[in-house]
C-alpha cells in the first residue's frame, strides 16, 4: 500500500496527471454536484483509502469528521457530520463530487476541495505561508480520491 502511494507521488511530481486520468480542471459535475466517472478509469483501494482518511498529511478526513471504522486513529473532529453510514447515504458518484469539490454539492460549505487547483485567493506553497510559485497540485491525487471513495463506500451505519 505504501509503495503504491510512493510510486504515485513520484509519478505526480510536476503536477501532471497520469495518462488516462481526469485532470482537476476536466472533472465533470452533474447539476447536483456528483461526478459519475472514475478519475482514474478504475476502482479505488479501500484499504489505502482508510489510511489516507486517517493521515494528517493526506486526506485527514478525521480532522473534521468522526469515523467509527478508524477508531484507532486518535482525535476525530466535529466540524462536519460523522461519516458512519456514508456508503449508504451517498452513491459513489456523489462521494466523488463531495471529495473533488464539495462546494458543487453544498454551496458555501466549509469543506476544502481535494481535487482542485485553481480559483483560490492568495494560493500558497503548501503550508509554508509563502506564495505558490508553481501551479498547484491537488491535495489528493486521482488515485487517492478513488481510494478514499472506495473506503467511504464501505462505511455502513453501525
Amino acid at each position: 500500500m505504501k509503495l503504491t502511494s510512493l510510486t504515485l507521488a513520484a509519478a505526480l511530481i510536476g503536477g501532471a496527471a497520469l495518462a488516462g486520468e481526469v485532470a482537476p480542471k476536466d472533472v465533470q459535475y452533474d447539476e447536483s454536484g456528483a461526478v459519475a466517472a472514475s478519475l482514474t478509469g478504475g476502482a479505488g483501494d479501500a484499504m489505502n483509502g482508510a489510511m489516507l482518511a486517517g493521515t494528517k498529511s493526506k486526506g485527514n478526513c478525521v480532522a473534521c469528521h468522526a469515523i467509527t471504522a478508524l477508531a484507532d486513529v486518535p482525535f476525530h473532529g466535529e466540524v462536519g457530520p460523522s461519516l458512519d453510514g456514508a456508503g449508504e447515504r451517498w452513491s459513489e458518484a456523489e462521494l466523488r463530487g463531495l471529495l473533488t469539490d464539495a462546494k458543487m454539492t453544498f454551496d458555501g460549505t466549509v469543506m476544502p476541495a481535494f481535487y482542485k487547483v485553481d480559483g483560490f485567493t492568495r494560493p500558497g506553497n503548501a503550508y509554508t505561508g509563502k506564495a505558490a510559485e508553481e501551479a498547484l497540485t491537488p491535495i489528493l491525487s486521482a488515485q487517492e480520491i478513488e481510494d478514499v471513495i472506495a473506503f467511504l463506500a464501505t462505511l455502513k451505519e453501525e
Binding site: F120, R122, P123, G124, Y127, G129, A131
Partner: peptide
C-alpha cells in the same frame, strides 16, 4: 492561521 489555509500570508 492564514498559513494553515495553504495561503500566502
Amino acid at each position: 492561521c492564514v498559513r494553515d489555509t495553504r495561503a500566502e500570508t
